[in-house]
Structure formats: C-alpha cells, structure tokens
C-alpha cells in the first residue's frame, strides 16, 4: 500500500497515458470506419474486400505489428504514435464490420421513404441512416474500447504502454505490487470505458427507450 501512495502521481500519469493511447485510436478508428462502412454498404465488391481485409488485419499479432510499424510509417521505435496507429488499425478492423452491419440493419422502407420525401444522399446518410445505426455501432465501439485498453499494455514491451509499464517494471524488480496495480487498473479502466459508452449510447438514442417502455 505504501508503494501505491508513494507512486500515486506516477500511476495517475500512466492512467492518463493509457486512456490517451486507447481513446485516440478509438476515435480515429470510428471516424475512418464510418465512410468505409458506408462504402461497404453500397457495393457488394467493396463489402467483400473490406470485410475480408479487416478480418485479416485483426489476426495480425499485436507485438508483430508494433515492431513492423515503425519501418512502414517511418517513426522511431519508441514513438507513442506507433501504438496509436496499431490500435487504430485494430479499431477499424472491428468497427468496419459493426458499421456495415449497423447501416445494413436500417429498414429499407425507412431509407426509401427518406428518398421519396426528397432527401439528398448525404443528408439522408447523416440524418437518417447514421442515427439509426448508433445502437449497433455503439455495441461495436464497446468491444473495440475494451480491446484497445487491454492491447495498450502490450506497448509496454516497446516502452510505451500506459499501465502496462507497471508490468514490465514489476517483472524487472521482481516485485508483485505494481503488477497487481497494473492489472486491476486496466480492468477498472475497461469497465469504466464500457459503462461510459453504454450510457452515452442510451443518451444518443432516446427513441429506443421510448420503444422499450411501450413494448
């Protein structure tokens, strides 16, 4: 416990770093997945390609990706950007499917009613299809958030890993406390992120609440 008290500012710093390393890729991944999901929903060819590529991307071992990335994008090995880019890739791999499914689940009669009323395609996408896709996208985001938070720790092996650095420290010092704090800390972060997204998703979809009450 005294270790915890002594290292508290350092731990908070790691938490902040951990959240940044997981959160920025989550956001970037979401922003990139939306247009990709839109594309996948428009053409069968694009759909097949995007879904198989994203399936393959997700199977690349994270450590391998972290080691190879600097060479691919020309960064230094210790640059946090490596972790962020790697996690963005994983986020996209997960979310492209979610966004595609979410957009595909919007009832066709609703979309075609929007056309019949004179929506232009972009406005229809932003104000009808995207809002209706929120519940399924949020479900995907929750998986991606938890996955990112656990993957950040792997970055510790290349020196940038948020709470994961507590594992490497603990191993080096043959000292259990930091390891436990690291594990508990990342689990708590994952649970917290999941809860925040759940609540945010509900807040964004008041009509679902209405339907639940009526049904």
């Amino acid at each position: 416990m005294s270790w915890l008290a002594r290292n508290w500012p350092h731990i908070l710093d790691l938490v902040r770093q951990h959240l940044e390393l997981a959160g920025v890729p989550l956001l970037a991944g979401l922003l990139l997945s939306v247009p990709l999901g839109w594309l996948a929903n428009r053409s069968v060819a694009a759909r097949g390609l995007l879904l198989s590529v994203s399936g393959v991307l997700y199977t690349i071992p994270s450590l391998a990706l972290l080691v190879v990335l600097p060479a691919v994008i020309g960064t230094k090995i210790l640059n946090p950007v490596n972790v962020m880019v790697a996690l963005t890739v994983y986020t996209i791999a997960l979310l492209v499917r979610s966004v595609t499914d979410a957009l595909g689940s919007v009832p066709t009669h609703v979309v075609s009613a929007a056309d019949a009323m004179g929506f232009r395609p972009l406005r229809r996408f932003l104000t009808v299809e995207l809002p209706l896709a929120v519940p399924v996208v949020v479900a995907g985001l929750r998986v991606a958030a938890v996955s990112n938070i656990s993957l950040v720790s792997v970055g510790a092996l290349i020196g940038v890993g948020g709470l994961g650095e507590l594992f490497t420290d603990g191993f080096q010092l043959q000292f259990l406390t930091p390891i436990v704090v690291g594990i508990v800390g990342s689990v708590l972060l994952a649970l917290l992120a999941d809860a925040v997204l759940l609540v945010a998703g509900r807040a964004l979809t008041p009509w679902e609440r209405g339907a639940r009450r009526a049904g």
Binding site: A113, D115, V128, L132
Partner: peptide, 22 residues
C-alpha cells in the same frame, strides 16, 4: 432534379416508413 420533384409529391406506404428516431 429528383429531390426537388419528390418534395412536391406526397408518398405514403404500407410500412409507413416513419423515422423511428424522430
């Protein structure tokens, strides 16, 4: 143009096509 034409023609369908989120 399609969008302009359609705003001047009302359209009602069996499944209503109402926007569930509005």
């Amino acid at each position: 143009p399609r969008a302009v034409l359609r705003r001047g023609i009302g359209y009602v369908i069996q499944q209503t096509g109402l926007f569930p989120h509005r």
